[in-house]
Simulated scan of single mutants.
Amino acid sequence: MAKFFTEITPELQTFIEDQKIFFVATAVDEGRINLSPKGLADTFRIIDKNKILWLNLTGSGNETAAHLLKNDRMTIMFCSFDGKPLILRLYGNAKIYHERDTEFKQHIELFPEIPGTRQIIEMTVDAVQTSCGYAVPFMDFKEERKQLNSWAEKQGKERIEKYWKEKNVKSIDGLDTEIFGGSQN
């Protein structure tokens, strides 16, 4: 049975911190819903019982950023693939910070230096839901993939920004991501 909480309890925080992957969902009124898997250790922070941060790395799209500019609702889901079955969802409202933003500069020290860092997402959690997870299969964690970091290291900052101009300025539905500030026509 599903249970709702108004905050991230210490027990739920421990569960979150033990997970190797989480999923982020955002949507605007029209267009596609975005659901993205996020991995790489050490890119998720619980600031307090109702606030989280996660480090958004360079990807083939930038849907989360575009969606949050139009509609700040976000859901993050964790599920257990080993041990006790559990699905946990964080519901709330989020803001996106770029390297040019004061908040980015304030929060970046909380994370390790990772090549290709694109944004920091801050979410205010207004509800936490747990459910059984009985149908989630057991899966063994083998290791993190190293390709994204290797690719970003090879690119360097200048080529990463060129990639952003080519792939991350607009969402797949044509919405601005404001990755370089303001509207990108």
Rank of each mutant, 00 (worst) to 15 (best):
P37V: 00
A66K: 09
P85Y: 03
A27K: 12
D101M: 08
P85M: 01
N50T: 13
C132H: 02
K49D: 15
I76S: 01
D126V: 05
F23S: 11
D82I: 12
L12C: 09
I46Y: 00
T58G: 11
A41C: 06
V28E: 13
N62V: 02
E103V: 11
E122P: 01
M123H: 00
I52A: 06
H98P: 02
Y97Q: 12
D18P: 02
T26H: 06
Q106P: 03
R118K: 15
H107M: 13
V125Q: 03
D48L: 07
H67L: 11
R45W: 02
F111E: 07
S36D: 04
E17Y: 15
K38L: 00
I120N: 11
E113D: 11
A94S: 08
D72P: 15
T58P: 06
A41T: 12
P115I: 01
E103N: 10
S131H: 09
D18A: 13
N93Q: 09
E63C: 06
E30Q: 15
K20F: 12
L68N: 02
N34E: 08
R118G: 07
S36H: 06
D42Y: 11
F104G: 04
P85F: 03
T64D: 06
T75M: 13
C132Y: 03
A25L: 02
G83K: 06
P115A: 10
E103R: 14
L40G: 00
V128M: 03
P115V: 00
D48V: 09
T58V: 14
N50G: 01
Q106S: 13
F23V: 13
G133S: 06
D101L: 10
I121N: 09
D48N: 13
N93I: 07
E113L: 10
P37A: 00
V125E: 01
D29H: 10
Q19Y: 10
I114R: 09
P115D: 05
R45I: 08
E122C: 04
T14Y: 11
T117Q: 06
N93R: 15
R73Y: 10
G92S: 04
P115G: 01
T130F: 04
I21A: 12
T102V: 14
Q106K: 15
K84H: 09
M77W: 01
T64I: 15
F15Q: 02
D48F: 05
